[in-house]
Design a protein around this nucleic acid. Structure first.
Lengths: 239, 239
DNA sequence: AGCTTGACTCGAACGTCGTTCGTCTATAGA
DNA sequence: TCTATAGACGAACGACGTTCGAGTCAAGCT
């Protein structure tokens, strides 16, 4: 089957009759799932930038051309990865009394999933409203917000804003982590170093940055993430 | 001079004695400013993905190797571009009575600047706390927030969150615009098409998405942007 | 049973990318 | 005038995404 047809078939509602058994082959044929699995493994181990058609093909003991029988593009592969990633999120049944916690829970799940595969959120940014599995997540968040009494227009835009922020946050931290590993200890921008840098700035032109260097560099773990998501959620509540 | 030294010199406080006149050459030598100018022109005309060392060199009537006398890396070039871009922002004197409008104004400026050079926010995402010119913008926003009475910790994190969101928003819209141009009318995801897609989804599994397709696809211009920034700013005010 | 069809594999290649090396030129300082 | 050096640049390297075309096999038809 042509990979373009395959891609189209993926977006069609699933055929009611079960798939007619995975056709056996002498040398076991490569499947799309195998490709996605290997790709995710590669990203988890070495980051998204290491996900190359050539390296992926190598992980499957074949050449790069073989992949194009199962995947249209690298963009198509990205879409598959994000789809798989979103499919693993569990969306709670909306509880009007706990909608804030539920929204934050979904965001946390998505954040953790993105960070498990460092840098993959770059692909997620590119297709926020496109992929079907993302629509599923979007639907789940929308349900929670609407259940919580948020006005439909606010809820719709908030879902978009939250998904965008989560992807951006994860992309930023992935870049920061990568810099601290591959660059030879020259980019060591851990918090202490960054804070020292801020305080070393000329206080005349950067008075607030130097004075509040502590606050600017504060935040263990995902405190900054929690703060921002909380800001948006609380804003929705007061709206 | 070695380009690494040049880069280091850029991050040092400017030499009090003025530069000793741009040394003349027979064939006028390339300067860093020329490189940045050409690069920005290229990005403005054809988008960030068209910014290639080779194409940039071509625009300067030379080969790619010549650029490396003035720039360490493509990453270094990105840093220069973002710096130039941020340097053009005008930061208002903090007015405690109008801090919300002032913050939004700075965000709008940054948004417009990013969108003038489509896709360049990808580079901006990678160095939110790094570059000196970004620190200048950060300082300006911090001053406005502190002047408005926002608690220092909230202000510091909010600056970070806002800069991140603005960059992500601009990156997303740049990708969307590019898709609508270079793909041959197959990716026509204008709002009507997107809305039609949402309503065509199976209502059983996506009840809210189909019912509120109008809200999900609503928003002229930067309404979505204004909504999200307003959400964060109002959240700060109520905190 | 033989043949056709079509999905799949894969070696080889194309064009592009960022970057480096070595060489050359022409100026600045002695 | 001589020399040291900053800068320009042709050529090349390795890696990237992608395409082409020949080959290989299983399934379906006659």
């Amino acid at each position: 089957m042509n990979p373009r047809e395959r891609r189209a078939a993926r977006h069609r509602p699933p055929d009611p009759e079960g798939e007619p058994a995975p056709r056996p082959r002498r040398t076991a044929p490569i499947t799309v799932d195998q490709v996605v699995d290997s790709a995710l493994g590669l990203v988890a181990a070495e980051g998204y930038e290491a996900l190359t058609m050539r390296r992926l093909a190598g992980a499957l003991d074949t050449g790069p051309a073989s992949l194009y029988a199962h995947v249209v593009n690298k963009a198509d592969l990205d879409e598959l990865l994000i789809g798989r990633l979103c499919a693993e999120l569990v969306l709670p049944e909306p509880d009007p009394a706990a909608w804030r916690e539920q929204v934050r829970g979904v965001c946390d799940q998505l954040r953790d999933q993105y960070l498990r595969y460092p840098g993959i959120s770059r692909a997620g940014l590119a297709m926020v409203p496109t992929d079907l599995e993302i629509v599923r997540v979007s639907e789940g968040m929308l349900a929670i917000l609407l259940g919580g009494g948020v006005a439909p227009q606010d809820a719709a835009w908030a879902v978009d804003a939250l998904l965008l922020y989560v992807a951006a946050y994860c992309l930023e931290t992935a870049i920061a982590r990568q810099r601290s590993t591959d660059d030879d200890a020259a980019w060591v921008l851990d918090r202490d170093e960054l804070r020292r840098r801020f305080t070393a700035l000329p206080a005349a032109t950067f008075p607030h940055t130097t004075r509040h260097a502590a606050e600017l560099t504060a935040g263990e773990g995902h405190d900054r993430f929690d703060f921002t998501v909380g800001l948006m959620v609380d804003g929705l509540a007061h709206g």
